[in-house]
């Protein structure tokens, strides 16, 4: 039954799936809390330029993608903080510049349509041992910071002004969250692809919070859901001969579809008359990042 474990590339794929499934919802919880659910999507666009630069220059695409995505995330955060009115348009310019520039550079590097496809929608079965080491290192980095700094990150995402008056360096943590999101995008790039990264950051969180009342449990449950969806997605894609990235995302969405009615009943029972649906799911790519 578990014949997929007979293949080296499937074993690596499953490890990559676990790493991605843990990391993406961990940082995604903070993004959703901050109401920046689509930030990952924008960073994904920018990361494509990083990938192309790697292919063009001969560096490992994951490395160049981390660097470019992190720089992009810092610029996005600075725009968010310092420009009130025009930030929205500036973000759009950055995102579409990232994806157009990425495709152009890929062409120049002699990359084929399938190379592009691999990065846009993931190619988890082509993960090499070197990739896996890099991805594992980045995962540990993100998880240690996302869990270790949870009190500060929670405070900043919950209420920036109150956090500032508590002496928390809010700007620093805002940048940290953006950079961690960028690293996560790169980690998830090989698994679900740049265009679907945001789904794995947001959908498990949206699913978890159908059932939860506390941040702590939402955080843990989202990571569990993300991991199960990623592993089950890889397994399903092996047997059904589908692309792993979209399979993972469809499974995560299916989990959401199943829990949403349960959540509606739970919330109606717990809540006083007021309230609405708790959180939006991932929307189309052209929505704005800043609420």
């Amino acid at each position: 039954m578990l014949e997929l474990l007979d293949y080296d590339f499937m074993r690596r794929a499953l490890v990559a799936a676990v790493l991605t499934g843990l990391t993406a919802p961990a940082i995604g919880t903070y993004l959703v809390q901050r109401r920046l659910a689509l930030l990952g999507d924008g960073i994904g666009h920018i990361a494509l330029t990083g990938v192309a630069l790697g292919l063009l220059t001969g560096f490992a695409p994951i490395l160049t993608a981390v660097v470019v995505a992190a720089l992009g995330a810092v610029v996005i955060e600075l725009l968010r903080v310092y420009s009130r009115t025009s930030g929205d348009v500036a973000l759009a310019l950055l995102f579409y510049g990232g994806i157009a520039g990425g495709v152009l550079l890929l062409n120049l590097a002699g990359g084929s349509a399938s190379t592009l496809n691999n990065y846009l929608f993931g190619a988890i079965t082509t993960v090499s041992d070197g990739d896996l080491t890099l991805v594992a290192g980045l995962t540990v980095l993100v998880l240690v910071l996302a869990v270790g700094l949870a009190p500060q990150l929670f405070a900043v995402c919950q209420d920036e002004e109150h956090a500032r008056v508590s002496g928390v360096p809010v700007r620093f943590y805002g940048l940290l969250i953006a950079v961690l999101a960028a690293v996560t995008v790169t980690v998830a790039m090989r698994t679900v692809g740049l265009l679907l990264v945001s789904a794995l950051m947001v959908v498990p969180v949206a699913t978890a919070q159908q059932l939860t009342r506390s941040f702590r449990v939402t955080f843990a449950l989202a990571m569990a859901i993300g991991t199960v969806a990623a592993v089950a997605g890889v397994g399903t894609s092996f047997y059904a001969d589908t692309q792993p990235g979209p399979t993972i995302v469809v499974l995560a969405l299916a989990a959401f579809a199943v829990t949403a009615p349960v959540g509606a009943i739970l919330h109606a029972r717990r809540r006083r008359p007021r309230g609405g649906p708790p959180v939006p799911t991932a929307g189309p790519a052209d929505s704005t990042v800043v609420p």
Partner: peptide, 13 residues
């Protein structure tokens, strides 16, 4: 905020 949190969690922050 965008993610559920309990009364105790907010007070603790």
């Amino acid at each position: 905020s965008g993610v559920p949190s309990t009364v105790g969690e907010v007070a603790l922050s």
